[in-house]
């Protein structure tokens, strides 16, 4: 009995599967990293840019708990010392436009935050 062709067929299927990103990339290209529209006339965010890139989701989570569970309405920036009212619409979305800022990276990295299950975008259409 000669099963070599079955083994080679299996191997080809395996190789096609593990190189999926390679041949998919060869067909569709690498894709462009997102270009964010930054708010005009502002020089800084609540915390440093690096901190916001990596930890904005934790900050929002923390804010939610502070406001909803602990009745704390103000947040003081650790980096700059400014005080902000804890509110998605009055701080974050006051400067940033959801479709031009949040959604860009989230779509690129395939992240689906559930903010928008409840919140709306005040600058949106």
């Amino acid at each position: 009995m000669n099963d070599k062709w079955k083994i080679i067929l299996g191997l080809v299927v395996f190789l096609a599967a593990v190189t999926f990103p390679v041949w998919r990339g060869a067909i569709a290209g690498a894709g462009e990293p997102p270009e964010l529209q930054l708010p005009e006339g502002k020089t800084k965010c609540i915390e440093s840019k690096e901190f916001m890139i990596d930890n904005h989701m934790n900050m929002l989570d923390e804010w939610r708990n502070m406001l909803v569970r602990e009745d704390i309405h103000e947040y003081t920036s650790k980096e700059y010392g400014d005080t902000y009212e804890i509110s998605l619409n009055k701080t974050c979305l006051n400067c940033h436009k959801k479709t031009e800022f949040c959604d860009k990276c989230h779509a690129y990295a395939d992240v689906e935050p559930y903010c928008w299950d409840c919140h709306y975008d005040p600058k949106g259409d």
């Binding site: 990103p21 690498a30 894709g31 462009e32 990295a109 395939d110 689906e112 935050p113 559930y114």
Partner: peptide, 26 residues
């Protein structure tokens, strides 16, 4: 795969949704 392929294929998004079904934490 979401980190290697742009745009992310739909089946990967479906897996992520199922895997994070309980929406615990951020």
């Amino acid at each position: 795969i979401r980190l290697f392929v742009q745009p992310t294929p739909a089946f990967v998004t479906m897996i992520e949704r199922a895997d994070g079904f309980f929406q615990v934490g951020v």
